[in-house]
Amino acid sequence: MRRFVLAHTTEVALIVVMLVLSAGLSLATDRFLTLSNAFDVLNVSAVNIIFAVGLLVVLISGGIDISFAVAASVVQYLAVLALGVVGGGNWALGFLIAGAIGLGLGFVNAFLVYRLSIISIVATISTFNIFFGLLMFFTKGVSIYNLPDWLTTRVVFYEREMADGSWVELTLPVVVMLICCGATWFLISRTTTGRKLYAFGDNPEGARRFGINIGAMHYISFGWLGLMAGIAGLMQAHYAEEVVPNALYGRELDVLAATVLGGARLGGGKGSVIGCVLGVLMVSITQNGLNLMGVSPFAFKMIVGAIILVAITLSSARLDKLLPAFARARPRTGGPR
């Protein structure tokens, strides 16, 4: 148990905070602790969670990416145009095109970081400007409302009316989000590639001495985020039923905050899918709860910002200092016995 807590401090802390928060909110409003509200929260968070698990892979391998949200906007626009060219298309084609474009944009970042040795924050701030500038230049900021029918039709996998008249709905974005989480979890914790990504993020020089292909690590991590960004872009277009070129602008920093809140470390080597999901949900639950309590929407961001600020401050002060029970007794001359 102590070992588990030591290895998953952030996740455990987040679960505890979320339980306390949820308990408080369910006392404050009777609507909060219902199944349909839980599914609402999931629906709202789906796109951000897909972004977050993609970003997680880049953070684990020691990089950072600022460009993924505007890359998703580029994907939306290009994918819808491409689908128009092929005469409408369908879901399969939609995922294929969006995924491929996203992957390509991710590879652009990997190329800059690996081939040209530009550190990732500088490279992705540059591509952030390039992607967004070109998108706004060529689209002149005009939105697309005329999407293919299949893309804007709600897809519900499961629905049920509850006793209180509310509906429980399992929609496509949630299902896609679950698949993305599953795939990312499999990649980072079950494949040899995943172990290499962690190793590279943890100790790049050590990984190099083990003959790990550093170039491949860059292309895989940024490519994976690109792929996730492409899928998230498609899901966001589906959810919003329109493509607005600057709709996702600014989303990158919110997702980054949530991901790091979930225990991913800037600098690499650490982070988990479950932490990532908890980080995003924590923000969504707060907003949802405030909404149900009738707090002005203008106050949401302020309160969410304050909560993230407190959480990050607390998580930087180490858990074993706050809870002496977990502190290690380290003998002065700690020889192995």
């Binding site: 172990r195 962690y198 190793a199 050590g206 001495r209 080597g269």
Partner: peptide, 28 residues
């Protein structure tokens, strides 16, 4: 001298690192 170990990984993963990154079908 710097050991070239991986701090966030477990003891087992560090010792068996060669096995962790060379599994069959790319799986650990």
């Amino acid at each position: 001298q710097d050991l070239a170990l991986f701090g966030e990984m477990t003891v087992a993963e560090n010792i068996g690192f060669q096995h962790a990154v060379n599994g069959r079908f790319g799986l650990v």
